[in-house]
Each structure stands twice: as C-alpha cells, then as structure tokens.
Design a protein around this nucleic acid. Structure first.
Lengths: 217, 217
DNA sequence: AGGCGTTGGCTAACAACGTTAGCTCCGGTG
DNA sequence: CACCGGAGCTAACGTTGTTAGCCAACGCCT
C-alpha cells in the first residue's frame, strides 16, 4: 500500500467545480448523466508534521497488521516512542481512528468524483461501482474501520461525508436512488471483505448484477 | 424485546419443505417467483438449560445496554455469578457472540422464508426488503454484531448462513442477483442503524428506491 | 452408609488495553 | 542567563478477557 496516503490527502487541493444548483431540482426524468459536481471539496484540517507522521504510521499499522494491532502501545512502538507520548499530539485513540476515516473519505471522494467525471450516462454506474470496490479491496482494514461505529460525526470535517458520497448522486441523478446505490455498494464491499459470500462465488458476477440493477433501462 | 428469543429458536423445529432441485438449474428467464424452498433448515445445536439462560441474558444485555456492555463480568453480574464461572459453560466470549449471531441468522431466515412464502412475483422483493429492515431495526445491536468480524465460519452451524440467505434467491430466481440484493439490504440496514444517511432523509424512499432497482421490470 | 467424581461456583491473578499524572530534558526566546 | 513550552519518559489506575486452583454440593456405585 501507499504509505504516505495521509500526506497525499493533506497536500492535494483538487479544486472542485461548483455546478448550477438548478440541477438538483431537475429530478431524474430525462436528465443528462453524470450530473456536474455541486458540493465543494471540504478543506482538510491543518496538521503538524508529527501528527501526520503518526497518522501515516497508524494507517500502515492498520493495513499491515489488522485492526486488532492498532493499539496505542503498538503505534508508539513503531514510532519509537511510548504510548503516553502520543497524547502530546492527539487526544486519544478515537481521534486517530477519526483521522484515518477522514483519509478514507477523502480518497474515496476523489477517486469516485474522478471516475464519474470520465464516464458517460451508459457506464457511470458500472464504473463507479468498480472503482468503489477497487478502493475498498485495496485498503480493506481502513474501509472496515469506517463501517464499525456510529462515526462520531461531530469531529468529522464538515461536509466531508456529503461530498464523498456525492458521486452516487451524480451517477444516478436522484437522491434516494443515490443513497440506495451507495448503501448497496457498501454492503457488497463489506460482505466481500468479510468473505461471507458463498464459497466459490464469482464475485465479479455479483457486482455485475448489482450494476445492472441500478442501471436505468 | 422478546427476552426468550434464544429459547424460542432452540425449541422451534420448523420442518422446512424441500423442493425439487431442478428449480436451481432453471435459470432466471421466465421463471415463476418465488421459487420454492430448497435448502433444509439446519438443526440448532443442543444446549444445556444453563447455557440457554446465559445466552438469553447476553441477548437482553446486548440489546438493552449496547455492545460495549456485553462483557463477561457484566454478563456474570446479571446472572448473579462471577465472570470466570461463565467459562464452566462456554469457552469464551467469541462463543457467546457466535451463539447470538446464530440466533439472528435463524430468526432472519425464519422471518424471510415466511414472507417469501406469502408473496407473489410482483411484491416479493419489496416485502422481503421491508421484512429484513423491520427485523434489523428491531434488534439493532444484535444485527450489528453479525456485521463486525469475519464471522468465525468454523463454529457456525453448517448450512445456517446459506439457508438464512436463501430467501433472496427465492425472491430473485438468480443466484448472483440474490447475492447483490442481500448485500444491498445489508448495507442499507447498516447505514440506517449507524445513522449515516443524510439528516432529514426519508428512509422509506431510500428503501423504495432499492426495491424498485431490484424489481424485474 | 460411605466414598467419590462431576458440576458449578468462588478468589486471585495475569497480560493487554486506553488513559492520566507527574517528572525531566532540551531547545528557543526574553 | 533565566525560563518556558514541547515532547519524551515512568508509574499507575481501572477494565477487559482469560487461566489456575480451590471448594462445596450433589448423584451414584459399591
């Protein structure tokens, strides 16, 4: 995995195009897909160099050794310091997790917006799902982290989750269909990551069936 | 909540009708829905009276006080014994969780098979999803428990997960579409339980959009 | 009736976890 | 030169899952 993902996210600026708000009210019927970007990309919070280092280490630790290895002591260890010293930089473990979740949301948002930009009405849904799947499979433990708890919305960068989910709206042109598609992708990824589909299943076909269901016919 | 769910599950026998296996190979085109039951209902493992008591208490504890309250000490407390004594009956906490997950799978399977039995080709998908949602919302913490970890398949009653997922096949008539529908329902429930849809969303409409996507048109 | 093994409780304890309190050292600034 | 804040440290607390070892009660077999 790319170990400097946190740094990349913190550095990238990605001017998000803001589209005419009229597109929102247009409804689904006969609308051109994909819809243009609307929500502005939220600005990542400023972080000290040391904090960035810590989060990089945490991400690497999480992906390399699994969620149960992401402990404050182990995190300190890979950084060459003791666990209590981490509290000089971060308020606690939930803050580490929240920061990692934000990383995931930023990466997912960037990746999905980009693929929607590059797609036409016929293949948006399929390509969106493929990219969603590809991302989650590439960072399985990080993705799962985003799914565990009610996600302390409070200390999440405002607008981040909306912006990162917007590609689903852009792909469907209808907010509720967008939510359904997002949820479907989320569930399919989780089951695939957990290895819970019937053994021997050709998961490509499962994803294809999903794409077909959500493709306007 | 019904506190004796574990007992109910352990007691119920529910002779599952076994259908002609030919239906499996029939494919999706022009097939009558819903498909008949195929997989036999697995037989619940025999449990001592005390173990059943413990699992009932665990389920009640989980639903009443949340997952973070389901600790061995707290579980012992509500039973009037000390935590180590639990190990005279169960090998550890994972065993408690696995047993609860099995409870959920049995209940879900029963509920979904029943609703598919009572549905016609036009309304199967919608009613199946509605029932899935209703169950999960009624036992939120239990449902979440089934989603957390890779689900130690080893010590799960053989065939249980397949049988409990079969209603999705019965509703769609095609295995991969069934997997996609199951995954979509799973994801939507998880996001709803986690409160992660946009605030103010009318979730009924999200579920309706999902049902529409999976309804053969 | 008497020994005896199994069942099911107990306490004490361990390792690992997140976290807090309080000390120290070191580098920059007045 | 004084000092002050940043960033490390150790010690410790409370919780968690879990193990070891002890003991009382009950059923059973001779």
């Amino acid at each position: 995995m790319s170990t400097d993902a946190v740094g990349v996210v913190a550095a990238s600026t990605a001017a998000a195009g803001v589209a005419a708000a009229g597109a929102v009210a247009a409804g689904a019927a006969g609308m051109a897909l994909p819809v243009a970007r609307i929500a502005p990309r939220p600005v990542p919070p400023a972080r000290s160099a040391r904090v960035t280092e810590i989060l990089q280490a945490a991400l690497r630790l999480l992906e390399d050794e699994g969620a149960q290895s992401l402990t404050m002591r182990r995190l300190g260890e890979v950084l060459g310091i003791r666990a209590p010293s981490l509290y000089k930089h971060l308020p606690g473990k939930p803050a580490v997790e929240t920061a990692l979740i934000e990383t995931a949301l930023w990466e997912i948002g960037d990746v999905l917006h980009r693929v929607v930009d590059a797609s036409g009405p016929d293949d948006v849904v399929g390509r969106l799902l493929a990219e969603y799947r590809r991302y989650a499979l590439g960072r399985p433990n990080l993705y799962r982290l985003t799914a565990v708890d009610p996600l302390g919305r409070t200390d999440l960068t405002p607008g981040l989750e909306d912006w990162s989910g917007e590609p689903f709206y852009r792909a469907t042109g209808e907010p509720y269909l967008a939510q359904a598609l997002w949820a479907a992708a989320h569930g399919t990824v989780l089951l695939e990551l957990a290895g819970r589909f019937l053994p021997g299943s050709d998961l490509d076909r499962t994803w294809a069936a999903l794409a077909r269901a959500f493709t306007v016919r």
